[in-house]
Structure formats: structure tokens, C-alpha cells
Amino acid sequence: MCLAIPSKITAIDKETSMATVETMGVTRSANLALVEDEVSVGDWVLVHVGIAMSRIDENEARKNLDLFEDILREEDELNVSDSGPGQC
């Protein structure tokens, strides 16, 4: 359910709370009224039915990606770390 697309902010109109966002070279407008964090041009937001629902956290995204990189490097090593996912 709930298709939401990461989109990069390329312009913001503070008065109307509207932003121009870009996804893979396609631009459209998105409403920013529901985003809690302060966002600025260059930030990524998740857009659902034309409305941004959150800012994508760069640090968390990096952590995610780094983890996947680790997984790639751990090729052939059995029983990968206990530091990866699957921890409570």
C-alpha cells in the first residue's frame, strides 16, 4: 500500500508551502505542509499522492547503505557479524 517516492527538492515556495521536486529527471510539485523537519533545497523527501510525508535522513540512509556494503564485503564469510540486522 502507499506508494511513496524519494524525491529531491529543487525549489521551495515558503508562502504556499509548495516545493518543486525531482525524481530521475522528472520534476513535479509537492506539498510540504506535513513535513516536520526543516527542509531546504537539496534535501530528499518521501512524496505520497503529491504530498511530502517526511525528510529522508541522510545519516540513516548512509548507515543503511554502509551496512549493505558490509554485507557485500562479507562474501564467503559465514555467519556474518552479530552487529548486522536481526538484533533486538
Binding site: I5, T23, M24, G25, V26, R28
Partner: peptide, 13 residues
């Protein structure tokens, strides 16, 4: 598939 078409189809599902 061009980048723009890919973006368009992603956005609208």
C-alpha cells in the same frame, strides 16, 4: 527506458 520515463512510472506506479 529513459531516466525520465522511469521516474514518471515510478511516481505514478
Amino acid at each position: 527506458i529513459s531516466e525520465a520515463v522511469r521516474g514518471f512510472t515510478e511516481i505514478l506506479g
